[in-house]
């Protein structure tokens, strides 16, 4: 059974299903020099310039610490109706990412522990539930 479809499967995968949905793993990369980045790419390492085989996929935990949040009140793109909240998260595995706070999440503040989960954001043409990454307060 495959009832769900990931919106951006190149960026994350389902880690496990728990009581409150699916936890996620992020598809990052690691360079031979030790630099960890997100998302995975093979163009070259931003820190040292190594490329190709020097860069290997590396799964990142979606747990992290909130650095900042901003609720967007005005947004021109009709596909993304405001208000919504953007969070900046320092992942426990290194990279800092910015993405959306889960709809209906309690208010968050810098310093809080947060985690990325896969939340239903719509339906595909063939009727599958489409999942995308959203952060919320860590349980």
């Amino acid at each position: 059974m495959q009832p769900n479809k990931l919106l951006k499967p190149a960026l994350y995968s389902v880690e496990a299903h728990d009581g409150s949905g699916a936890t996620a793993r992020l598809k990052g990369g690691r360079c031979r020099c030790g630099y960890v980045f997100f998302p995975m790419q093979t163009y070259g390492c931003e820190r040292c310039g190594s490329h190709g085989g020097a860069l290997t996929p590396c799964e990142l935990s979606a747990n992290g610490t909130l650095l900042a949040e901003a609720t967007v009140h005005l947004h021109a793109d009709k596909n993304r109706p405001a208000p919504f909240t953007i969070v900046k998260v320092a992942l426990d595995d290194g990279p800092v990412i910015r993405t959306l706070l889960a709809d209906g999440s309690a208010a968050v503040a810098p310093g809080q522990r947060v985690t990325g989960r896969l939340a239903a954001v719509g339906q595909s043409e063939s009727g599958e539930t489409v999942l995308d990454l959203r952060f919320s307060i860590a349980s």
Binding site: K8, A10, L11, P39, Q41, Y43, L67, A68, E69, A70, V72, H75, A76, D77, N79, R80, F84, I86, K88, I97, R98, T99, L100, A109, P110, G111, L133
Partner: peptide
């Protein structure tokens, strides 16, 4: 290279995040 939600993060949101960080720090 893909991204999580860059379409939702226009410049004023980049700086709204920095404002939040500055105010708290």
């Amino acid at each position: 290279i893909g991204n999580l939600a860059e379409d939702a993060i226009v410049p004023f949101t980049h700086f709204a995040l920095l404002t939040n960080e500055y105010a708290v720090r």
